[in-house]
Each structure stands twice: as structure tokens, then as C-alpha cells.
């Protein structure tokens, strides 16, 4: 799949934002006043910013509002609905904390659920796609959720929890990669089943339908070398988990914590880049590429 920067930014940032909101929502002793303002500002900036950047890749962003209508069937629609609900609920929750110093725990729990729900719906957009076997697993949802709460924990300064979660996320990520690497062939979808010509023999693409590029090729076929991918995976784990863990294990300093956060975000972004770049769509089979 084409790793579109807007989609990578969206999933990375909004995941973090909603993760942070979730932690803020369930916090028994949440910050208030200006401290609350700062935390919520970051959380909203990330989640809303992510959502806005997701409209950049729309062909007709001015009609984005229409995307709320199909929540009965469409995970993308559900994501929209869920995100707005989460932001509204968490907005009220935050306003109460910031301006009135009031803590409505129930509202917080609801907002946290909606925030994680948003992350889940986002992940289901990918996990539902049979066309991309690498994504088409419940593990994708687990991974997205894990990233969200890990990042949220980091951002909200829950160092011990973050340390554990970083390890868990890294483990899940590696598991997801291992499972993903065999997913396409495990599915049994091949050029032979794609063309129905397997009963005659082995199928090879002899010529593309057009010598000119097209939307499908640009969108669905992105070939990165295996060596390249392995290197990026190492970098991703290092930035996402190893470096933050090391930094967090050091005696606490704001500087180290900030670097840990930035490193984590960068690692997640690399992982997201790989999430798309390594994903092979069945359409590729028709072009003799995966």
C-alpha cells in the first residue's frame, strides 16, 4: 500500500491523542486548572490534528461530514461518530476540570471508553480488509490499542505503567510482524486464484494493462526490499520502545522524558510507515506484484 503521509500522521497522532484522553478520563485524581489545560490541549491537538490530517487524503474534503451517516455498516463512519462523541464528552470533562476544577468521573470513564473506541474503530478500518491479509487480523486492533495506551501513558507521565506497556507494545509489534509476514501466503490467494488460470499452470504477468501508471498501481503496489524493511523494523522498535525504556530507567529528568516521548512517536511513525508500505493488497496479484 502507498504509505500516504497524511494517513500515517493521522493514525499515529490521533492514536496518541486518544490514548492520552483515555488516561485522563480514567484518572482518579486528574489535574485541574492550567495543568489540566496543558494536558488536554496536547491530547486534543493530537487527536483533532490527526483527524484533520486524515481529511487531506480525501478527494472531496468539503463533503467529509457525509461520512457520519453509515455507522451501521461502515467502520470509517463509526470512527467518525466515535471520534466526535469522544471529543465532545472529553471536552465537557476537560472544561469541568479546567474551568471549574470539577471532576465528573463517570463522564471521564465514558470519554475514555469512547476514546479507546475511536482507536478501535480506526484499527477495524484496516483489520476488516480481507484484501490485505497482513492487516486482516484481530491483532491489528490489539496493536493499535496498545500503541494508544502506551503513548497515552507516556504522555501523561505514568512512567512505571509506560515501562511495562512499552515492553508489551514492542512484543505485540514483533508478534504482529511475524504473523503478518506469513499472512498473504497463508490466505492462499495467488495469481492463480486471482486469474482462475491456475488449472492450466503457473501464472505470470506478461504485460500490464497500460504502460502508463494508474491509481491502482500507485495506491496498492509499494514494493520495499526485504532488507530495507528489516532495518526499518529494528529502527522502529529501537525508537518506539528501546530508547524510551532506557531513558525512563534513567533518573527522571524532563529532558529525558521529552526525548523518550519524541523517540516513541518517531518509532510509532516508522512502524506506521511500515504498516502501510509492507501491506500487500490482492490487487497487486493482477500486476504480478504484491
Amino acid at each position: 500500500m502507498h504509505p500516504a503521509p497524511s494517513v500515517i500522521a493521522f493514525t499515529t497522532l490521533s492514536g496518541l491523542g486518544f490514548g492520552l484522553l483515555a488516561w485522563l478520563g480514567i484518572d482518579a485524581t486528574p489535574p485541574t486548572g492550567w495543568t489540566a489545560f496543558a494536558f488536554f490541549a496536547i491530547a486534543f491537538a493530537l487527536s483533532v490534528g490527526g483527524l484533520i490530517s486524515s481529511t487531506f487524503h480525501l478527494g472531496r474534503p468539503e463533503r467529509a461530514w457525509k461520512a457520519f451517516s453509515q455507522w451501521r455498516t461502515s467502520w470509517l463512519s463509526r470512527e467518525g461518530v466515535c471520534a466526535v462523541a469522544a471529543l465532545v464528552v472529553m471536552g465537557l470533562y476537560a472544561a469541568a476540570l479546567v474551568f471549574a476544577g470539577a471532576h465528573f468521573a463517570l463522564l471521564g470513564w465514558l470519554g475514555a471508553a469512547l476514546s479507546l473506541g475511536t482507536v478501535y474503530t480506526t484499527s477495524m478500518i484496516y483489520a476488516q480488509l480481507k484484501t490485505i491479509p497482513r492487516w486482516n487480523t484481530p491483532l491489528t486492533c490489539v496493536l493499535y490499542l496498545a500503541y494508544a495506551i502506551t503513548g497515552g501513558a507516556l504522555l501523561s507521565g505514568r512512567v512505571e505503567i509506560a515501562l511495562v506497556l512499552l515492553l508489551v507494545s514492542a512484543g505485540l509489534q514483533i508478534l504482529w510482524w511475524m504473523q503478518g509476514d506469513g499472512a498473504f501466503s497463508g490466505r492462499g490467494t495467488t495469481m492463480e486464484t486471482a486469474t482462475g488460470l491456475g488449472s492450466i499452470g503457473t501464472v505470470r504477468s506478461a504485460a500490464p494493462p497500460h504502460t502508463a501508471p494508474n491509481y491502482l498501481v500507485r495506491e496498492f503496489i509499494h514494493i520495499i526490499g526485504r532488507k530495507h524493511a528489516q532495518k526499518l523494523r529494528v529502527i522502529s522498535i529501537a525508537l518506539m520502545a528501546v530508547l524510551p525504556i532506557l531513558l525512563l530507567l534513567l533518573p527522571f529528568s524532563h529532558m529525558a522524558a521529552a526525548v523518550a516521548v519524541v523517540s516513541h512517536i518517531a518509532g510509532v511513525a516508522v512502524s506506521r510507515w511500515l504498516f502501510f508500505a509492507e501491506a500487500e493488497h490482492t490487487v497487486g496479484l493482477y500486476y504480478g506484484a504484491r
Binding site: 487524503h57 478527494g59 472531496r60 480481507k130 484484501t131 490485505i132 490467494t189 491502482l216 495506491e219 490487487v283
Partner: peptide
């Protein structure tokens, strides 16, 4: 009604949809 999100093209296994 289409917002050009491209998701339907992602969901189609056959490459039968193209975003203009």
C-alpha cells in the same frame, strides 16, 4: 455523496475502482 476516501477501492480485491 462520495468524499473520495478511497476505502472502497481498498476493500475491493479486484482493483475495480479508481479514484478520479
Amino acid at each position: 455523496d462520495c468524499i473520495g476516501c478511497g476505502l472502497c477501492a481498498w476493500a475491493c480485491p479486484y482493483g475495480a475502482r479508481e479514484l478520479d
